[in-house]
């Protein structure tokens, strides 16, 4: 469970209001999609959830704990995949995975099994022993995802995970996320691709210019908008100003 309460964040000393009084609850067991046009404040929100940025005001709780008062407890149950996979280029994929497993305290027994499974699924098995420097952008993204899946956290926070993934990998990721939520886990992911959101999410939030424009299941959104059309249409209407 992720709870945001009246979260505000601005850049450049208040010149840019990136997130404006955002209140949001991401319940466990449901795939939660965070939608918004470019520059809406999705990445900023996500960075505050995982503790990279501190909000100007408001509070964020993960699994019932305040992420600023008990940061380690929150981080221990969260895995985060950023939109830009900037990771240690000079390590090999395996060394990176081992580093992640070490710092998250993944038992040695489970590491081999889990990483083999995801390296296979993402077609990285052949390059895992090579330096990350030799990876393409998509491969880097997949090794970060592998690291996150290796941890098997209760909470996944993914920033635009589908952009840049090949169809097969995207499919595997969706299945893994579905299974994670079915087990009662929490998933929060941002996207601006409507098809993904419409078919894949149980619950959606639309953010526009830093403010929450709509939130609910697809049905609820349709009812709110008084419109039975596609998500795309609702999205364009809510964010069209």
């Amino acid at each position: 469970m992720i709870e945001l309460k009246n979260v505000c964040k601005s850049y450049n000393k208040g010149a840019v209001r990136a997130v404006d009084d955002l209140t949001l609850t991401v319940p466990p067991g449901e795939i939660f999609g965070f939608l918004g046009p470019n520059g809406a404040g999705k990445t900023t929100t996500i960075k505050m959830i995982v503790g990279i940025l501190a909000p100007d005001s408001g509070a964020i709780a993960i699994a019932g704990r305040d992420n600023r008062r008990e940061p380690l407890a929150c981080k221990a149950v969260t895995a985060y995949v950023p939109d830009e996979p900037e990771i240690y280029e000079r390590l090999t994929g395996l060394e990176y995975l081992n580093f992640i497993a070490d710092v998250y305290g993944v038992p040695a027994r489970e590491r081999g099994e889990r990483s083999r499974r995801w390296l296979e699924a993402f077609e990285l098995a052949a390059v895992a022993a090579d330096p990350i420097q030799t990876y393409s952008h998509g491969m880097r993204q997949k090794i970060v995802l592998t690291g996150a899946l290796l941890v098997e956290p209760r909470v996944f926070v993914l920033d635009e995970p589908m952009t840049g993934l090949d169809p097969r990998s995207a499919h595997h990721l969706k299945e893994a996320m579905r299974a994670h939520c079915d087990r009662g886990g929490t998933l929060f992911f941002s996207t601006h691709v409507m098809e993904v959101a419409e078919k894949f999410c149980d619950r959606l939030a639309i953010i526009h210019k830093g403010r929450l424009a709509a939130c609910g299941t697809l049905e609820e959104l349709r009812r709110q908008a008084g419109d039975s059309g596609s998500l795309e249409k609702i999205f364009l209407e809510t964010t069209g100003s």
Partner: peptide
């Protein structure tokens, strides 16, 4: 860079993951 692109066997992979370190060691 010189990339080997050789696939590791399941056993070799398991061996690479056999060691668990403390966080400060990592």
């Amino acid at each position: 860079m010189a990339a080997r692109r050789t696939k590791l066997s399941a056993a070799a992979l398991a061996e690479r993951f056999a060691r668990r370190r403390h966080d400060w060691q990592a």
